[in-house]
Design a protein around this nucleic acid. Structure first.
Lengths: 147, 147
DNA sequence: ACGCTTATTGACACACATTCTCAATAAGTG
DNA sequence: CACTTATTGAGAATGTGTGTCAATAAGCGT
């Protein structure tokens, strides 16, 4: 019986189980915490948020690694040698990241560089482009009014 | 007298010195190695490339950190907890990264999302966008013919 | 060129993020 | 409800990255 705070949308459960992974209580808790954070989190930060569930730190690391592998999380290098992870929906999307508070909002593919841009890059570089990443950085409304 | 392999374009030297940093032999060697690699490198890999210059591993870490701070290098998280660094020119640019061999090529701002896209993102999110990052991933010509 | 000031360096000790190990547990299956 | 085996938690082990400090050399004024 999953904990009330760990009821996940079918996106995560389906993707995990379709790949043969088991949907365990620790994984539910970790995914829910990462999802709810709405920003880049370190393993230690996430572990902090779920101490009451008796989830080991090693499991947090293992699950974050797994999520990054299957595309449900994005890994980022942090100053100080600590890695951060951000929840990502399985759909194609991009990020708007607040340089003040770190909050991340997903934006949909409407803002993607189009097919023509991709073709132009291919022509200019002789690469065969398969995918791309795009992030915007700036201040969110809250951080703007505070400053 | 700088070593023959460490003659750098004025871009790096100017930026370093303008910020009050000294242009030392170890820094020349590290920057030249990173620049010459043309792909993401770990500190250990770069240290390997310049063992003959008697540069300490600690200095490699310190210099990479410094370069990332002033925008001459990009830091990336790596599976296994080891950070990688990529040389970046001071100009605004984007990357095309080969998923086969890891080679990175810079492309100029012509492929940027334009002002109108940025304005649209601002309207959709109520963020004040200051900058963006854009990377393309795919196979380079060499890796395509080998496959 | 020559000293002076001080940022920078190399070596090594150290801290700590991340992974490994392994017996115990629980998810999924029939 | 039993069975198989992926997964877990705890702690040991690994190894990346940082701090310390005396020695060195970059840049500068003369």
């Amino acid at each position: 019986m999953p904990h009330a705070d760990t009821i996940l949308p079918p996106e995560e459960t389906e993707r995990l189980q379709a790949l043969g992974y088991r949907l365990t209580e620790p994984r539910r808790a970790i995914i829910a915490a990462l999802r709810g954070a709405g920003r880049f989190c370190t393993a230690a930060q996430l572990h902090e948020r779920i101490v009451d569930r008796d989830v080991g730190l090693a499991s947090v690391y293992r699950t974050l690694e797994l999520l990054a592998e299957i595309g449900l999380a994005e890994r980022r290098a942090e100053v100080g040698g600590e890695a951060s992870f951000l929840y990502c929906s399985p759909r194609h999307h991009h990020h708007v990241i607040c340089t003040g508070c770190g909050t991340v909002r997903e934006i949909d593919a409407a803002f993607c560089p189009g097919e023509e841009t991709t073709r132009a890059v291919e022509a200019a570089t002789d690469f065969q482009i398969a995918r791309h990443t795009l992030d915007f950085h700036g201040l969110c409304a809250d951080c703007r009014t505070e400053g």
